[in-house]
Amino acid sequence: MKSFTRNLMVGAALSMAALASAPSFAGESKTSPILGITSSSLEEFGGPDGVRAWVESLFYYIMLDNRIAPIFREFGNVERQTFLNTQLEIMVLGGPNEYQGASMSAAHADLGITMPQFNAVVEAAYNACERNVIPYHTCNQLINALAPFTRDIVTR
């Protein structure tokens, strides 16, 4: 009984420490592009609502692409993906870190994503920017911030 209480206290202390360092739900952290991204990137995307609209366009183009649509149809709940991706993109564009999903490596570990499949999503990302009238240079800030995830996502 005594040891149980002690374990409980240690556990509580540990989770307090975890809370202090980062939100307990944050499974991924901001990338650090060498030259940074322009500080107005999130604003140029139209703020959080603009990012949400962009992510919706992203999945629209992803689901139109036969090279990658089956993966998302099989493994991803598009509605949940849209929600999580919006949080992720807001974070990497310099907004608050409210991302509730798993880390990029954990989320993609078992999918065996190839380079051509990854690049197909990049193409969808640029198409989404065009569809949402986000300037190419602003779009590149997002690409800049997401590019380092390549090594976590592409496992084959």
Binding site: S32, P33, I34, A147
Partner: peptide, 8 residues
């Protein structure tokens, strides 16, 4: 050249 935007 392309993907490691966090490295020089």
């Amino acid at each position: 050249a392309v993907y490691t935007s966090d490295s020089f």
